[in-house]
């Protein structure tokens, strides 16, 4: 199929990133997308804009400033009390109104619960294409967005285009794109403030309560610097303690492959991979994990992967950097001990 952009889309220009603001905090995926959006905008020779929606509050203004800091030339801002907590209806109206008025050619959102909920209704309202859960974005020779995503449980990748419709929409998972450098000092850029034109009475869904997660024991896998994980090679649930011990010494988060979640050895928010968390740590240690493709796609962003496996031919050897060929049940305690010594010696020295 050839690109034949209809007349009405000719003026659609610039790259937009939805800046996801919930309860005063910007989801880091928004900054990651501004970093990626910057590259796309530069390739196309167009501007990069952040789209900020929130209540009239200092935190909303901070999100505007953050957008400039992470590379936006312009910010589209909708400030309204109706945009305090996420609800599909006002956010869909806000986004579709902005798109229809200011006509971006590309619109990127994080593939979070909020981003996915919003993207689906925005794309349907605008009757345009939406590529889900992308892992790679590029601009092709014709200036179209080429969005690549894993399919069939990660065993294949496919590249999808939205040739004849605008904007070209995509959602991208947290941690798939690198976090860009933030600009220091004073930052500024264009600011276009647009009213929402909606009343609370117009919104049918009401928020009765918000029950915040108890974060003390919650996995923070996606943004951890070091992650230690175990797989079926650990043999039995008791052995998972060896993974936790090593994680504790390293101040790391721990996680595991999917079968461990299915067997109830670990909580589901600790699953790493295609249907779990995507991680991007400086160091990833995987013990007794074979490295199935669905696991691989979640860890490929790690700077250094150490595999501990009895099988020198396990698939994980194709993408790990270092390997210890051996029994996780003896290697893990040895690593824990060796790290403990090394770190405590150096702490005294330092």
């Amino acid at each position: 199929m050839k690109k034949q952009l209809p007349e009405k889309f000719i003026n659609y220009k610039h790259v937009w990133v939805f800046v996801e603001l919930e309860r005063g905090e910007v989801h880091p995926v928004s900054w990651e997308l501004l970093g990626e959006g910057r590259k796309l905008a530069d390739k196309l020779g167009v501007q990069l804009a952040g789209v900020v929606m929130g209540p009239p509050a200092a935190t909303t203004r901070a999100a505007v400033e953050g957008s400039y800091r992470y590379g936006a030339d312009t910010v589209y801002l909708m400030e309204d009390p109706l945009l305090t907590d996420y609800r599909n209806e006002p956010f869909t109206k806000a986004m579709t109104d902005l798109v229809n008025t200011y006509q971006p050619e590309i619109l990127l959102l994080g593939a979070t619960t909020l981003g996915r909920d919003l993207a689906g209704s925005v794309a349907t309202t605008l009757a345009t294409g939406l590529t889900a859960d992308c892992t790679e974005l590029a601009i092709d020779d014709e200036g179209s967005l080429a969005a690549t995503r894993p399919t069939f449980g990660g065993s294949l990748l496919c590249t999808i285009h939205t040739l004849n419709f605008r904007p070209q929409m995509a959602t991208i998972r947290p941690r798939v794109m690198a976090m860009p450098e933030a600009k220091d000092g004073e930052v500024s850029g264009g600011l276009i403030e647009v009213p929402l034109n909606m009343k609370e009475d117009d919104v049918i869904t009401k928020i009765l309560d918000f029950i915040a997660d108890n974060t003390t024991n919650k996995a923070q896998l996606a943004y951890a610097d070091v992650v230690v994980a175990g797989g079926m090679g650990l043999g039995k649930p008791e052995n998972f303690k060896l993974v936790k011990d090593l994680a504790e010494v390293l101040g790391a988060e721990y996680g595991g492959s999917r079968p461990l979640v299915q067997k109830g050895w670990i909580d589901s928010d600790r699953q790493i991979g295609q249907t779990g968390k995507t991680i991007r740590p400086k160091l990833y240690i995987a013990a007794g994990i074979s490295g199935a493709i669905q696991h691989r796609v979640g860890v490929e962003g790690a700077d250094l992967i150490l595999a501990i496996n009895t099988d020198p031919n396990a698939p994980i050897m194709d993408f790990a950097h270092l390997a210890i060929i051996g029994d996780a049940m003896t290697i893990l305690p040895a690593l824990t001990e060796a790290f403990r010594k090394r770190l405590s010696v150096n702490r005294m020295a330092g």
Binding site: T131, T159, H161, L163
Partner: peptide
């Protein structure tokens, strides 16, 4: 609106 251009193995 979406067109699958290419399918490939990682």
């Amino acid at each position: 609106p979406t067109v699958v251009k290419k399918v490939f193995a990682p």
